[in-house]
Design a protein around this nucleic acid. Structure first.
Lengths: 156, 156
DNA sequence: CTCCGTGGGTTGGAAAATCCAACTAACCCG
DNA sequence: CGGGTTAGTTGGATTTTCCAACCCACGGAG
């Protein structure tokens, strides 16, 4: 799935090579919600069983999920997120918020998240250093490796 | 690309149906950096020209990009992010941060972002209401529509 | 005017990935 | 024994992707 002759080293591309295939992020959605078993995943995601099987293998190999037997005799397995897998949750949250905003209405959200603080969780991306919400114009890009040309206002 | 018989209404799935196809998010990475022209995109992303053309059409149709002529005679076009497109940047940033952390080392980051505050930008997802960094265990899921079963600790 | 190069695509055919229904396998229950 | 559940695997049809080649409009050099 990687862009075979991508001349550009990029962590976004690398990440997508692992979790950018069809259904992979939906698998992660499910396991983060606690739906960990094959048939649950098939039903909830709506993926073909064979594709789901290959995705699970890949995610386990990549260290994003672990496969654990929840029953010997009969052998039955469940898939749980690793630390690396859990750390993809922010990606899912921002993606969900985007979809809620741009593809649905406020009245049509399939799911609402609640934070321990008692409020509805509206996730925002902030700068770890200053705590401010990150805006497009407040960020500049500094290439560290050859292969990058940044022409826009984000230029270093 | 949508999970054809997905029984589960979900904004993540909806969003991925638009921008989850191969190369789409890399297109967004480029246009957000200011690389707006077809040949630049081909080179920087490493996508086949025909696939890139169909992706661009789709993103324009979806209102994520706009196509603008930067020269009549000869007609030449550039692709710019709309507001909806720009709002996908947080997704790219968190994905990049994840890739930097889990697929590369601190010494091997292809690109570093800088925030106006003067510090290196490390994006974190926080709760808009209380400002705290969002942790997995601090979030609970409240389905608003039928089709959801949440079995884990995130259950409503 | 002719030839070359550039930007922005389109086209046809080969290769790969996906989809689907059916099947296996291991076990439990009545 | 027959039926049901879970977790996959298999074969073949369908759909996407990939790739190289081509096309068109133009600008500039000779």
């Amino acid at each position: 799935m990687a862009a075979s002759r991508d001349p550009r080293p990029c962590s976004i591309a690398d990440a997508l090579a692992l979790v950018g295939e069809k259904y992979s992020l939906l698998v992660l959605r499910e396991v983060c919600l606690g739906n960990a078993r094959f048939d649950q995943l098939v039903r909830n995601i709506g993926a073909p069983r064979d594709i789901l099987a290959t995705r699970l293998r890949r995610l386990v190999d990549a260290g994003i999920l672990t496969k654990r037997a929840y029953s010997e005799r009969p052998q039955r397995f469940e898939y749980l997120p690793t630390q690396a897998g859990l750390e993809l949750e922010p990606v899912l949250m921002t993606l969900m918020a985007w979809g809620d905003r741009h593809l649905r209405g406020d009245d049509d959200r399939p799911m609402v998240l609640e934070h321990v603080c008692g409020n509805e969780l509206r996730p925002v991306v902030t700068c770890a250093a200053c705590g401010d919400r990150v805006r497009h114009d407040d960020v500049s890009a500094h290439p560290q490796a050859p292969g990058w040309t940044v022409t826009g206002p984000s230029a270093a």
